[in-house]
Design a protein around this nucleic acid. Structure first.
Length: 335
DNA sequence: AACGCATACAACCGCCAATCG
DNA sequence: TCGATTGGCGGTTGTATGCGT
C-alpha cells in the first residue's frame, strides 16, 4: 500500500544539505525558533493553510511538515511526555480491535493524545508482546495494512484436538483460542468464534442462564445476537463473563460500527488467570486421562516449542511476563 | 565504563480523498 | 470535467534514552 522502506530516508540531522533558505525544504528535527514561528503563525491564522507558511517564506518547511509538527507537538493540551495510563491502554486495545489501525479515529477518544502517540504506543506494545511470546509479528504479507482490524494478531497456538474433541466442528480461521475456565468440560474457542470478540474471559455456565453480559459497547440486541451465536459444547450453553476491570466510559457515543469478528486482542487470551489454572489441572488430570496427549507445554508456540524453556508448570511460563502484566485483571470467582 | 537491547519518540514517506481553479 | 494542489492518514524508520549485564 504504502512506500515501505522509503520512510525516514533523507531526514534527520544528518541532512546537512537542509538550509534555511525558503527555497530549500528543511527536514529533520525542529528547532525552537521554528516552533516559535509556527506557533505565531497558528496564533494569527489558525491551524490551516499550512502550505502558505513556506510560500510566505516564514519557514523552509513543507506544509505537511508544519501541520505534523503542530498536531503532534505544539497543539495545546497535548499529553506530551506522559505515558499511557491503564485506562488509556484499555481504550486503545478495545478500539483497535473494533476499528483496526485507525489511529486518528482512536485518538479522538483519547484527549491529549495524537494519532502518532497511539500508533507508537500500539507498535511498541505489539513488539513487546511478540517478544514476550517468543514469536514474530505477522509478516508484511500477512498484515492487513490497517484496512481492517487485525485477524488474530496473537501468536498461534496449536491446540491439540484431543483436548477438545467437541470442538472439532467449530470452524476456525485462525489458530488462536480463548480458553474457558477449567473444568471437566473444558473447551477452547477460536478467537474468531462469533461472540468472543471483546470478551476478555469466558466461563462455562452450567445452567444456561447467563448472568453476566460480555463487555461490548453495543446494543442489547447485538448482545443478544452475540449470545445466540455462541457455540454450544456438549449440549451446554456457554456463558460469557467479563472478568476484566471496569471498562472506561467513552466520551463519545460508540458505535456506529458493528462488531468485527476479527478483533481479538492478545491480552484476553493470556491475561486470564484461570488460563494457567486450566493447564495446571490439565497437567494433573487430563493429561492422565488422555494418555499420550500433549499438554499445553508441549504445544508449539509460534513455531518454537516452549517446553524446553518452560518445563512443566504454568508458573514458569508466566514467569516470563512482567510482574505487573496481569495487574489489571482480577481473579475470577471461585467456582 | 562499555556494550547491547528494548522502548519511546519524532518525523519522514507515499497514498488517497477533498478541494480548488 | 479534469488536473493540480492540499491536507489527512497510516506505515515505517532513525535517534535518543533508559536499563540490565
Amino acid at each position: 500500500m504504502h512506500g515501505a522502506g522509503s520512510g525516514g530516508g533523507g531526514r534527520g540531522v544528518r541532512d546537512e544539505s537542509a538550509s534555511t533558505t525558503a527555497t530549500t525544504i528543511r527536514k529533520g528535527p525542529w528547532m525552537a525558533e521554528e516552533d516559535a514561528v509556527l506557533m505565531e503563525y497558528v496564533r494569527k491564522n489558525g491551524p490551516r493553510d499550512w502550505s502558505s507558511i513556506r510560500s510566505k517564506g516564514l519557514l523552509p518547511r513543507t506544509g505537511k511538515s508544519c501541520r505534523l509538527r503542530w498536531v503532534n507537538k505544539l497543539k495545546p493540551d497535548l499529553k506530551t511526555g506522559c505515558k499511557f495510563s491503564a485506562e488509556e491502554e484499555h481504550i486503545v486495545i478495545d478500539l483497535q480491535a473494533r476499528f483496526g489501525n485507525k489511529w486518528a479515529r482512536i485518538a479522538t477518544y483519547l484527549p491529549g493524545r495524537t494519532d502518532n502517540d497511539v500508533k507508537n504506543f500500539w507498535s511498541t506494545r505489539q513488539k513487546r508482546l511478540a517478544r514476550l511470546l517468543h514469536t514474530s509479528l505477522p509478516s508484511r504479507s500477512q498484515r492487513n495494512q490497517g484496512k481492517e482490524p487485525m485477524l488474530c494478531e496473537a501468536p498461534s497456538f496449536e491446540v491439540c484436538p484431543t483436548f477438545f474433541p467437541s470442538l472439532a466442528s467449530v470452524p476456525t480461521l485462525c489458530k488462536s483460542w480463548v480458553f474457558l475456565q477449567q473444568n471437566p468440560n473444558s473447551v477452547a474457542l477460536p478467537c474468531n468464534t462469533p461472540g468472543v470478540e471483546f470478551i476478555p474471559f469466558v466461563q462455562e455456565c452450567s445452567t444456561g442462564q447467563c448472568s453476566h453480559a460480555p463487555y461490548v459497547d453495543n446494543t442489547d440486541v447485538e448482545k443478544t445476537e452475540l449470545m445466540q451465536n455462541l457455540p454450544t459444547i456438549d449440549n451446554q450453553v456457554l456463558c460469557l463473563q467479563s472478568c476484566s476491570p471496569p471498562r472506561p466510559q467513552f466520551n463519545h457515543p460508540i458505535l456506529e460500527m458493528p462488531l468485527l469478528p476479527e478483533g481479538q486482542d492478545l491480552v484476553p487470551e493470556f491475561g486470564d488467570l484461570s488460563f494457567s489454572n486450566h493447564f495446571a489441572c490439565m497437567e494433573n488430570s487430563q493429561s492422565m486421562q488422555l494418555a499420550g496427549a500433549p499438554t499445553f507445554f508441549d504445544l508449539d508456540v509460534g513455531g518454537r516449542g516452549i517446553k524446553t524453556e518452560h518445563p512443566g508448570t504454568p508458573e514458569s511460563f508466566f514467569g516470563d511476563f512482567p510482574t505487573d502484566m496481569f495487574d489489571c485483571f482480577e481473579q475470577p470467582p471461585a467456582s
